[in-house]
Amino acid sequence: MKLRKVTAATATVFALALTATACGGDDGGDNNSSSGGGGDKIKIGIKYDQPGLGLKTPDGSFTGFDVDVATYVAKELGYKPDQIEWVETKSADRENALARGDVKFIAATYSITDERKEKVDFAGPYLLAHQDLLVKKGSGISEATDLNDKKLCSVTGSTSAQNVKKDFAPDAQLREYGTYSECIAGLQSGSVDALTTDDSILAGFASQEQYKGKFELAGLKLSNENYGVGVKKGDTETVNKINDALEKMVSDKSWEKAVEANFGPAEYKNEPAPQIGNIVK
């Protein structure tokens, strides 16, 4: 793989206090103004615990590729960084957060699937990721079949490790931990031999300063994960505006810069920016 060495320069924004929303429907709430003026705010859902994608740092700021994408989109909708209120949206609550109106949109490693499209609308995709393996450099693990008799880690509730065992390495020994950080620690100590999930997530963790140069991505494409921006079902106007913003982010090279800044240190060989509406099965 080609090593990309860049200096992380992601946008830093600050969480603001919750603002009172007007009574009634979606028209007139603080999340729906596109002017960004008059003290309006916009609430955006992200992950708080995924380095390189959506991470709340100890000083209270937010970094990552999803944060950069969301900040750019918000700018195109008329909002400055200090008008953004970041809202933690865990995977299990993303659809509910949109339905309740807790956030205007969500950028949080949100894979577009037919099942999810029944509940929410999606702009994008803005990144094509793949299930992959993260291993120690020099481990000799380069294929999923190499995991037979090896210890494979993923987080509790994820289907990634089970898919590897079912389809590629039936003799792999599965280890489920509560967080990806625990899997990374196990990989570093040698208590597990590999970690599997989306390559973008793996690259984000491996890009952390304390892990640079210690791990590598196997470069496998065990699945296609089309990351989209989730929007409340039926809000076509916002979907169209976000799609316009994403296209502009690609054309002015901001997308490429964000990829390099957030994932480059992990030797992440990313796919080109996807075309809007093109879902890779």
Score class of each variant (00 low, 15 high):
residue 215 F to G: 00
residue 215 F to L: 03
residue 217 L to Q: 09
residue 217 L to H: 04
residue 217 L to F: 06
residue 217 L to P: 01
residue 218 A to W: 03
residue 218 A to V: 10
residue 219 G to A: 09
residue 220 L to W: 03
residue 220 L to F: 10
residue 220 L to P: 08
residue 221 K to Q: 15
residue 221 K to N: 14
residue 221 K to S: 15
residue 221 K to L: 11
residue 222 L to C: 09
residue 222 L to P: 10
residue 223 S to T: 15
residue 223 S to C: 07
residue 223 S to Q: 11
residue 224 N to H: 14
residue 224 N to W: 07
residue 224 N to A: 15
residue 224 N to L: 07
residue 225 E to D: 14
residue 225 E to G: 03
residue 226 N to M: 09
residue 227 Y to I: 13
residue 227 Y to K: 09
residue 227 Y to E: 07
residue 227 Y to T: 13
residue 227 Y to F: 15
residue 228 G to T: 02
residue 228 G to N: 03
residue 228 G to L: 06
residue 230 G to M: 09
residue 230 G to P: 05
residue 231 V to L: 03
residue 232 K to V: 06
residue 232 K to H: 08
residue 232 K to R: 13
residue 233 K to S: 06
residue 233 K to G: 02
residue 236 T to M: 01
residue 237 E to K: 10
residue 237 E to V: 10
residue 237 E to C: 00
residue 238 T to P: 01
residue 239 V to H: 02
residue 239 V to F: 01
residue 239 V to G: 03
residue 244 D to P: 00
residue 245 A to Q: 07
residue 246 L to Y: 05
residue 246 L to R: 04
residue 246 L to C: 10
residue 247 E to Q: 15
residue 247 E to S: 13
residue 248 K to N: 05
residue 248 K to A: 08
residue 249 M to W: 01
residue 250 V to L: 05
residue 251 S to P: 04
residue 251 S to K: 14
residue 252 D to W: 00
residue 252 D to G: 02
residue 254 S to L: 00
residue 254 S to V: 03
residue 256 E to H: 10
residue 256 E to M: 07
residue 256 E to L: 11
residue 256 E to N: 11
residue 257 K to S: 12
residue 257 K to W: 01
residue 258 A to F: 12
residue 258 A to T: 13
residue 260 E to L: 11
residue 260 E to M: 09
residue 261 A to Y: 05
residue 262 N to A: 10
residue 262 N to D: 13
residue 263 F to D: 04
residue 264 G to V: 01
residue 264 G to E: 06
residue 265 P to R: 08
residue 265 P to Q: 07
residue 265 P to F: 00
residue 266 A to H: 00
residue 266 A to R: 02
residue 267 E to F: 00
residue 267 E to I: 00
residue 269 K to I: 05
residue 270 N to P: 05
residue 270 N to I: 05
residue 271 E to D: 15
residue 272 P to C: 05
residue 272 P to M: 12
residue 273 A to Q: 04
residue 273 A to Y: 06
residue 273 A to N: 04
residue 274 P to G: 11
residue 275 Q to G: 14
residue 275 Q to D: 14
residue 276 I to M: 06
residue 276 I to W: 01
residue 277 G to T: 06
residue 277 G to N: 10
residue 277 G to W: 08
residue 278 N to M: 11
residue 279 I to A: 07
residue 279 I to W: 04
residue 279 I to Y: 10
residue 280 V to I: 15
residue 280 V to T: 15
residue 280 V to M: 12
residue 280 V to S: 13
residue 280 V to G: 05
residue 281 K to E: 15
residue 281 K to A: 15
residue 281 K to C: 03
